[in-house]
């Protein structure tokens, strides 16, 4: 099937529909659901509906009023999706706000607010976040730059550290904003096979091999194989299952 490509430079509107490539630089609006092989935006881009694309690249201010479903993509700047995000691979740097996220590899550097669960094969979060649901992945890696919150963490390997993975910019920003050194994660429960936690406040932590590092305050730790607790951590109760 022959598909059209559209491109906006400056300000304009695109009707929803099926396209080969959509390219917006400047300020653009898509009225309705859109499906494209490739979706590129630089500037202010609003999709008044759902967006489906194989390749997705936006920088500046992006907003979708529906769902976002992509194979792979990157977003930088402000990224807002009111519905659900599904991606085989998605990298976001900047400020993200969205519904539940589901995918293969999900990485967010910066600030993230998610209404719902984040479920993927690998989840890497760096910065500060607020996730209303469960963060679950085979591998969860978190680098905390500021106060963060999630309802639950679950998976196979879970690692939480203070400080960002890519240091530089975010921690400089953190110092400017006075958030540096405030990295901390508040969560009801952490469950996984191998847990390596720092600066986590949780009611309960359950795992096979557990390391409770500095800054943690845990109500109760249940472990199967081994438990290591840092002298700079507080654990209410330790139970070997």
């Amino acid at each position: 099937m022959d598909r059209r490509s559209v491109s906006i430079a400056g300000a304009g509107k695109i009707e929803g529909g099926v396209y080969d490539r959509v390219k917006i630089s400047g300020s653009g609006k898509v009225t309705g659901d859109v499906e494209a092989e490739e979706f590129k935006g630089a500037g202010a881009v609003t999709v008044e509906g759902s967006l489906r694309a194989r390749r997705f690249d936006v920088s500046g201010a992006f907003k979708a009023e529906g769902d976002l479903e992509i194979e792979e993509g990157e977003a930088s700047g402000s990224f807002k999706v009111e519905g659900r995000v599904t991606a085989r691979e998605l990298k976001v740097s900047g400020a993200a706000k969205c519904g539940p996220i589901q995918g293969g590899y999900i990485r967010v550097n910066g600030a993230l607010k998610a209404k719902g669960d984040i479920e993927a094969d690998t989840v890497r979060l760096s910065g500060a976040f607020k996730v209303e649901g469960l963060i679950s992945a085979d591998r969860v890696e978190i680098h905390l730059e500021d106060r963060s919150k999630a309802r639950e963490l679950g998976g196979e390997v879970i690692e939480v550290r203070r400080g960002t993975a890519w240091g530089g910019l975010l921690s400089t920003l953190g110092r400017l904003l006075g958030t540096h050194g405030r990295g901390m994660l508040e969560v009801e429960s952490v469950e996984g096979d191998e847990l390596d936690l720092e600066w986590v406040v949780a009611e309960v932590v359950r795992g096979r091999v557990v390391r409770i590092g500095p800054g943690c305050r845990i109500g109760r730790v249940e472990y199967q194989e081994s438990l290591e607790v840092s002298p700079d951590a507080q654990v209410g109760e330790e139970v070997k299952a």
Binding site: Q102, E119, A120, S136, A137, D138, G154, G155, E156, V157, E191, G192, D193, R206, G207, R208, E222, A241
Partner: peptide
């Protein structure tokens, strides 16, 4: 309980969460 499920079936947390996903 989840704990009991893991104990009875011998599966890991990782597997349970993966299957849920």
């Amino acid at each position: 309980s989840k704990k009991e499920v893991l104990r009875l079936t011998g599966i890991s947390y990782g597997q349970l969460y993966r299957w849920k996903r």
